[in-house]
Amino acid sequence: MGYKIYREKFADLFHELRASYEIYAPVTKKDKGMYSDTDLITYDKVESFTEIVFDKKTFFSPKEIVFPIRQTLFYFTEDSVLEPTKLEKDIVIFARACDINSFRSLDAIFLQNGPYEDPYYKKLRQRVKFILLPCDGFENCYCACLGTNITDNYSAYVDVRDDAVYCKVKDAYWKGLWSKYGEESEVEPRYVSKNENTFEIPQKINNSIFEHQMWSEYTNRCTGCGRCTVVCPTCTCFTVHDIRYDDNSKYGERRRVWASCQIDGFTEMAGGHGYRHKQGERTRFRVLHKISDFKKRFGFQMCVGCGRCEDACQEYISLKNCIHKISEIMAEEEKV
């Protein structure tokens, strides 16, 4: 069902929604950019509708809402192991199609891979409802090449235009709320149909790519800071470690923390042995995971084409450029 709701009315609707949900959306954090006098556009909990930024891509993805950067798995007391039990409200996330689609990849790892569901992820994930945002595309995006420009996985859609908010509500539970504030109107989500960057991800990538000299370029360029992985909406790796509290050494916790295959230590075992020491090898590992390995395992592309890895790279390394090179190499091999 579609609705047209005037802005001030929508603010009331939002207020009512907030009573039942924790709402996360793109916001501007003033002066919180890396460089002085710059802002950070990112996901955060919002109190009012006016805080939401509709016209900019967030630097970080919404994954941290369901997969916190640091998450306590257990609390240790002298003689017990306790699970965190805090109960929270249901969660609403305002997100574009690519970001909503990224949750498929997160779900695949946390809920499907291996014999068990990840209970910490599931606890947060099952409380999430999406409100879809329209998108006209941003720099470095290529969602349309991956089909992640479109989604059906949302409870409502909102598009703020001029003095009104145009909405489509799919979730039956929410229709009452929406109809209270607006008049019915024909509304269909607006998606990106074609990005500035168009290319095809190679269907088949031969193992010959492992030994290809194309990766040595990244050994020279990449500094291994890990930004590409922390901003990626689909990167899920983590490391588990224990803490002994400074003020009481008998108490502590076991927590998981985001890990990055680009940062030193990702493969290093006790005793010091590790794999992929060169940044070029790490780039290869990341890129092939995003566009090939994951797909072999789960049947769909992991990368959603949001372009955040490229937005964030301080060395101007472009994933789409790298994919393009792989395509060319594979096409060349095909000929031979």
Binding site: I109, F110, N113, G114, P115, Y116, D118, T236, C237, F238, T239, V240, R256, A259, C261, F266, T267, E268, M269, H273, G274, Y275, L288, H289, S292, D293, F294, K296, R297
Partner: peptide, 20 residues
């Protein structure tokens, strides 16, 4: 032998190609 933080296919450390 690989670095592992979970043992159950979540942490990603031991992944090689499409194999955990």
């Amino acid at each position: 032998e690989r670095k592992m933080s979970c043992g159950i296919g979540k942490c990603g450390h031991c992944k090689i190609d499409d194999t955990y």
